[in-house]
Design a binder for these strands. Structure first.
Length: 655
RNA sequence: GCCCCCGUAGCUCAGUGGAUAGAGCAUCCGCCUUCUAAGCGGUCGGUCGUGGGUUCGAUUCCUACCGGGGGCGCCA
């Protein structure tokens, strides 16, 4: 059984998949099975090299190939081709049911040609058993992180409408959460809200001191965006106005009831708007955490004392940081003036953002010795998140948050330095393990192409390649607006408004997810709203087509028989389906959503290819062929649907 | 100055020690009485920024440069 031999067929003709672990792994992923086999064979030859197995470069070579003999040549001091022959013989000696033939090609590859009737059946069976309620096992070589992973994302300042930069953050964080959950990780998703910062204070100044008012029908978050821009403009004209901002910030810090209740009302309304925006993209949170609660509940006070007592932070007596509590860099623990020294408490006694972030990070790991109060954010919504609170504790919310074993902070790459400070603080407090498990999931920003910047009225005479988004200067594409435009683009061809919205949201998500995190997204309207080619619409369309076939070709319940020789397109589709677990594992362990978008597009492409280049299944008269081809489509649809949902996209049966 | 990211086809991006470097868009030419043409096929297009090095093998690793972006705040 460990070789994949034997085992009775189920009534459907499908091999049972739930027995011993070895069989399970074999059933789930052809490549892993081959890696195992190559590994054993290499061991038998005494070749201590990696058992690399990759898709064959050309169809003539077979399905899978290993270049291991090339690497082994040095270790064994023999000709690669000889080693390849030995490896082939070794592999042929312990036959795998999966493999029809092992061959050798120069300069030293060993290739496997699969037994179509066997591997196709296994791949289809595994795909049809995908169940949203059952975590997907990682293939050999990938390991699941232990314990709970806490993912913080979105964290948009609650003083303006969310724009595409914030949306990129949210899509990445949400997808990482989904990918981790899909692979059996325990996940908590927090949205951290900075309700004590400068940006909020600016809007308070705009409304209270400048008397700015919403226009008729203007959404509140958009009104705040407008105020924010206007206040920033006024600061430039009359810098004295910035004193008002300082007063607001002190009011917040002191807990001045007049200021705090105003801020509370303001930020709660904006957060509601953010949640509504994100919900359109199917993005939700377990917990909203408020920076003000970190102060009010004494988290920062506690963290401060620990940091102070451990010597991690010191009070600068003189120099440019005189009167501040600072964290000096590694190797200069007493130097309060070094360039890399970070101020955590300002000379006026106010903690900086990073200081509060340290306290929050400690809470995430359960290291602060305190907890928030909790209540349901919006009891009128069934799937409302929970929010932290400083006093209104609800007994209906058991405090099961935090206490993570791993923390993933989705924060743009520009904040690498403060994130390092947070990590360093944990380390200085002796929390090595937690410091090592603090992951800054850095992603690059969204910027505007000159064309997009021009559309927004930005002066592009500088001739730059890209132009930065700026909420403060009103240079932005609001998340809601982009989605509205995408819906508009799709509406005509979609069957109804609801479908148009789902497909549009998926398209926008896909666009923001398909780039590597290290890549700046050069935002362009035409590109973002395109509906052909490598887009979310294409993926969903492929899924809908597959669904259409299954609707028209009923399952006859007969035994699945795989033809002895598959068509090249069928083979290509099966290889893609077979690769799902690996792609998912790669995305999960690498915290890399784009791995999954790339995979999903390739899978959808292979399905479209199949669709276009094989006769319509509805008209197939041979029941055996019809059944096989239907199962192939069903397996592909199941896999694509799983991938789409894991990406946070809808899998519509019709568009 | 120090640190980080990017540089691959006209444009936007995948790929990353292995056998002839891929996709989408754009161009041009085709394919709807056929399971949804938001599709498919073809065409055009590359000294993988440059020079050294390591290796049987480098777009991938090292190194030095060049170009672009970002960070190094008592902002976040």
């Amino acid at each position: 059984m460990a070789n994949g031999h034997g085992g009775a067929l189920s009534p459907l003709g499908l091999r049972p998949c739930t027995t011993v672990a070895g069989t399970l792994a074999r059933m789930l992923d052809v490549r892993s099975a081959l890696v195992d086999a190559v590994r054993s064979a290499l061991d038998a030859l005494g070749a201590r090299v990696d058992a690399v197995v990759e898709p064959s470069a050309r169809p003539e070579f077979g399905d899978w190939s290993t270049p291991a003999p090339l690497a082994a040549a040095r270790v064994l001091r023999r000709a690669p081709l000889q080693i390849a022959e030995d490896l082939r013989a070794q592999l042929a000696n312990a036959p795998l049911e999966l493999v029809r033939e092992w061959t050798v090609t120069p300069p030293g590859y060993v290739n496997a040609t699969l037994q179509d009737g066997v591997w196709a059946r296994q791949v289809i069976a595994a795909a049809l058993q995908l169940d949203p309620g059952v975590a997907i096992e990682l293939p050999a070589g990938y390991s699941r992180a232990a314990g709970k992973t806490l993912v913080e994302h979105t964290a948009t300042n609650p003083n303006k409408a969310a724009h595409i930069g914030h949306l990129r953050n949210a899509c990445i964080g949400d997808t990482v959460g989904r990918v981790l959950r899909r692979t059996g990780h325990q996940v908590e998703v927090d949205n951290y809200i900075d309700d004590t910062g400068v940006q909020v204070a600016d809007v308070v100044v705009g409304i209270r001191d400048l008397g700015l008012k919403p226009e008729e029908g203007e959404p509140f978050d958009q009104f705040c965006s407008r105020v924010y821009v206007e206040v920033s403009r006024r600061y430039e004209a009359t810098p004295e106005l910035q004193h008002r901002r300082a007063e607001v910030l002190h009011g917040i810090e002191r807990g001045d009831p007049d200021v705090t209740s105003f801020v509370r009302d303001l930020t709660h309304r904006v957060v509601d708007a953010h949640l509504a925006t994100m919900r359109r993209f199917d993005i939700e949170y377990d917990l909203l955490t408020w920076e003000s609660d970190i102060i009010t509940l004494g988290f920062w006070r506690q963290a401060f004392e620990l940091l102070r007592d451990s010597g991690a932070i010191v009070l600068a007596e003189q120099g440019k940081h005189a009167g501040c509590w600072v964290m000096p860099p590694e190797g200069a623990e007493q130097d309060t003036d070094d360039d890399e020294t970070k101020v955590l408490v300002k000379s006026d006694g106010v903690a900086t953002y990073t200081a509060k972030d340290i306290a929050y990070q400690m809470w995430k790991f359960g290291l602060i010795g305190r907890d928030f109060h909790y209540r349901v954010w919006d009891a009128s919504t069934p799937d409302s998140p929970v929010t932290t609170a400083s006093h209104e504790h609800s007994d209906e919310v058991p405090p099961h948050f935090g206490h993570a074993q791993r923390v993933v902070n989705v924060i743009d790459a520009r904040q690498a330095y403060p994130q390092q400070i947070v990590q360093r603080a944990l380390r200085r407090l002796g929390h090595e393990r937690e410091a090592d498990s603090s992951i800054h999931l850095a992603y690059e920003v969204v910027a505007l192409t000159p064309a997009a910047a021009g559309v927004l009225g930005v002066d592009v005479s500088a001739g730059r390649e890209l132009y930065a988004l700026s909420g403060r200067h009103g240079i932005e594409v609001r998340a809601d607006d982009l989605l509205d435009r995408a819906v508009e683009r799709i509406r005509d061809k979609a069957r109804d408004a609801q479908t148009a919205l789902l497909v549009a949201a998926g398209a926008v998500r896909y666009y923001l997810l398909r780039f590597s995190l290290t890549q700046i997204i050069a935002f362009d309207f035409d590109e973002a709203l395109r509906v052909t080619g490598d887009t979310g619409v294409y993926l969903q369309y492929a899924y809908a087509r597959a669904s259409g076939i299954l609707r028209k070709v009923p399952d006859d319940g007969g035994e699945l028989v795989v033809p002895d020789s598959l068509q090249p397109v069928e083979r290509a589709v099966l290889h893609r389906v077979d690769g799902y677990r690996r792609a998912l594992a790669e995305a999960a362990t690498g915290l890399a959503p784009s791995v999954l978008t790339t995979y999903a597009f390739a899978l959808a492409s292979s399905l479209s290819d199949f669709y276009e280049h094989t006769p319509a299944i509805v008209r197939e008269t041979d029941p055996v062929v019809r059944r096989f081809r239907r199962a192939l489509v069903a397996a592909t649809r199941a896999t694509l649907g799983d991938a789409l949902r894991t990406l946070g996209m809808a899998a519509p049966n019709q568009i």
